[in-house]
Amino acid sequence: MNKEHFLIELKIYLKPLTAQQQAFILNKYETIFDERLSEGETEEEIAKDLGKPRTIAEEILQEFDIQVPEKRLERDGWQEIQPAASYDYYEEPTEHPYDDTYQSYERPKHSAFGRFCQVTGVILLNFLLMFWCIFSAAMLLLSFWLMALLFLFSPILGGISIFSGFNDAATFEMFVSIFLFGAGIIGLLILAPLTRFLGRGLKRYFLWNIRVLRGEM
């Protein structure tokens, strides 16, 4: 089950709730998927770890004191859950901890001075420290990639030296080029996952900057 299938099925089972409550719960699980996808997990692994959408929905509905009636599954495998009470009951829902939770996840309120300190701190952190650290790491990583790629093309130079004149020096150059070729392959095997790891870290840092600048933290 992928992310889209999981969220659609969960939304169907959460139908007895109000649109606001559904949106909050679905947004919560979508955030869980996005965070764990950025850490390298697949959608199927995340969905399997979270459990069945129906089970999750039943637990949530029970917190709202909504009984989940048993219904026969339709031909396509979907099951629609209807509330035990009438629909009018949901026009004015009673107070529930989920409503407080929804409010608590709204953008926190900061004073003007607090927001100024936040924005100024993030800007100074990036321009005085993080920009140079990220730039240095990117240049170092790029140099390693260029070196590994050059090592991969080293046998071409060794072959040219062999064809131009077979002697002891040419043979030595050929062996050195083969060694460098192997080093280039090992370098690529190391650099590929390292680049992905650093890319994920940079993405999470960028998202953190956006959240701070928007005042969500």
Rank of each mutant, 00 (worst) to 15 (best):
I162L: 15
G121Y: 14
P93K: 05
L50P: 12
E74G: 02
L61R: 08
K3F: 15
T120A: 14
F181K: 09
E95P: 01
Y13P: 05
G215I: 02
E95T: 09
A183R: 12
R196S: 01
D100F: 03
Y29R: 05
F153C: 03
V122N: 03
N2S: 05
I60P: 00
T94Q: 13
R75W: 06
Q22W: 06
E44C: 00
P97N: 02
E95L: 08
L191P: 09
S143Y: 03
A85R: 05
L141E: 07
F64H: 06
F153A: 10
L26R: 10
E80G: 00
N167S: 12
V176D: 13
A169I: 15
N126G: 03
F172V: 15
D99Q: 15
K15S: 06
Y90S: 04
S38F: 04
I134D: 06
L194C: 04
P193A: 02
I25D: 01
E173D: 10
Y87D: 13
S86D: 15
E41D: 07
I162Q: 08
Y29K: 07
L37H: 03
I210A: 01
P155K: 11
W78Q: 11
T101S: 02
F113R: 15
S136R: 13
A169M: 15
E30L: 05
Q62R: 06
I46F: 05
T31N: 07
E91A: 02
E91P: 00
L213Y: 13
V122D: 00
P53A: 04
L129H: 01
A47W: 07
W132G: 00
A183P: 07
W132I: 00
L50F: 05
R200I: 06
F166I: 12
Q20W: 00
F206L: 05
L207W: 09
I32K: 09
S136G: 06
L37G: 01
Q22C: 08
S143T: 15
E63K: 10
A23T: 14
L180W: 14
I156R: 00
I190T: 04
Y90E: 02
E59V: 03
V176T: 11
F166A: 09
I178S: 04
L7H: 08
I123P: 06
S111P: 13
S136E: 10
Y102V: 02
F127P: 00
L141H: 11
S111N: 15
L128E: 03
I162C: 02
L198A: 08
L50A: 01
A84R: 10
G184W: 11
E43A: 13
F127Y: 14
Y102W: 13
F116Q: 03
I123M: 09
W208L: 13
G114K: 09
L149Y: 06
G182R: 05
I210K: 11
Y102L: 09
E63L: 02
T94F: 09
N126Y: 15
R115L: 05
R72F: 05
M174D: 04
F181I: 08
M174E: 10
S86W: 07
L129Q: 01
K28C: 04
D34E: 15
A23M: 09
V68L: 02
G199A: 13
W132S: 03
L129M: 04
R115S: 03
N27H: 11
F179S: 06
Y89N: 04
Y87C: 06
A170Y: 12
L125K: 12
L37N: 04
N209I: 15
M1C: 06
D168W: 12
L188N: 05
C133E: 09
Q21S: 13
R36G: 01
E106L: 13
